[in-house]
Simulated scan of single mutants.
Amino acid sequence: MGHPLATLILLALGACSAFAALALNLPLPYLLGPLLAASLVATLAPQHLPSGYQFPPKLRLAFIAIIGLMIGAQVTPELFSDAPRLMLSFAALTAFVVLAHGFGYVILHNIGGYDRPTAFYGAAPGGLFESIAMGEEAGADAARLTLQQFLRVVAVVTLLPIGLSLWLGEPVGSSAGMTLARSSVPWSALPWIALAGVTGIILGQALRLPAKQLTGPMAIAAILSLTGLLHLDVPQWLVNTAQVVIGTALGMRFTGLTKALLMKGLWLTALSVGGMLVIAAGFALALMGPLDQPFDVLLISFAPGGVTEMSLVALSLSANPAFVTLHHVFRILITVVGLGLSARWLRARL
């Protein structure tokens, strides 16, 4: 149902929360600030929202495309200069997805007591929106599934940059002021950005890409960059606006959750995501020599969440953000393909 005034108020609240998170030096402040504020409204004061209110999905879709364009523009020919090592890394990442998903499933089903569909799709280490959509089709509990998937991303993009900041002795990621966007971009570039975004969304839908609202525009920007036809520079103000819109939209998905369910989700996330990060650290240690990459760069490449924030952390570490981004896109792809292939097996078990 359309409630433009409610949407404007929520976005204004999200913007204020973003500036507060920025003042506190939180990672990804323009995303996490609005997400936390909107989730508090959704869980503690849903009675103040219009009856049947839903955040406009097309608005969220448009701004997710902006993030995709920003990331895709970082892909350069140099990234593919060492194909054998890249293939080894992708093979290891495939093994990581299987192990991390299995570990998360055991935590959510055996310890958390979630039913099989909710535990299976809630434990997926990637493909946030696809996991939720497939899980709901399989009969999963929508509230618990949404909670676990969002908490996975929030936990990784919050805890990993903070942990690396403490280890390195200085801020990393967006809290260090890092960005993949350009601060000075002429207004004449906006029509090209809009055209690339729309084309990317259409491409993602036509090819049924995983996380198509992100990967479709990202593919368009990467193709333009790799071919030298056009390098898309996305202005910083547009990226910040996109994150406020996306964070507010994600936070509103918590509508209907109780305090008890939220607390249970938090400690299950601590167990499952903690285990996934330990597995990621093991792969990072094993691949340091063969891939000739530092441990911290490989760790953020395998961490199960936050494409944008992990790419910003890569900038802090003087690493190529496109290298990290490529690994996260592959993780999402493998996860979503695995969910699709496993759907028939899961239905048989049920």
Rank of each mutant, 00 (worst) to 15 (best):
N25D: 14
F295M: 03
I9Y: 07
G122F: 06
A280N: 08
E130D: 15
W345E: 04
L79R: 12
A242S: 15
G275L: 09
M87H: 00
L277I: 04
A196Q: 09
S184T: 13
V234L: 14
M252Q: 11
H231M: 01
L31M: 15
D82H: 14
S17T: 03
A21L: 06
A23I: 00
L232W: 08
L285I: 14
V156I: 15
I111C: 07
T258S: 15
A222P: 03
T335L: 01
M263V: 13
A23H: 11
H231I: 02
S184G: 00
N110T: 09
A206L: 15
V245M: 07
T325Y: 07
A155T: 12
L230Y: 14
P217Q: 08
G14S: 10
L164A: 00
L341H: 02
L312S: 05
L26S: 05
G216R: 09
G338H: 07
R144I: 01
G251I: 12
G306S: 09
L49F: 08
P57T: 12
S175M: 14
I9N: 02
L195P: 00
P46E: 09
A23N: 10
S184D: 15
L214Q: 02
D141E: 12
P29I: 09
D233Q: 14
I201K: 07
S17L: 09
A155L: 05
H3Y: 15
I111N: 03
L226N: 03
E170N: 10
I193T: 05
G177D: 06
G112H: 12
A194C: 11
L40R: 02
I107P: 01
T308C: 00
L203D: 03
P191L: 08
R152D: 01
G305V: 01
T7K: 01
T255E: 13
A189F: 10
D115E: 14
G52P: 13
A281D: 13
I279C: 04
I66E: 03
T146L: 07
C16A: 15
L99H: 02
T255P: 00
Y105G: 03
K212D: 10
R208D: 14
I246E: 13
L13T: 11
W237N: 05
L291N: 09
A343S: 15
A211S: 13
G52E: 10
R85F: 00
F63G: 12
I132W: 06
G112M: 11
G306R: 06
S39L: 14
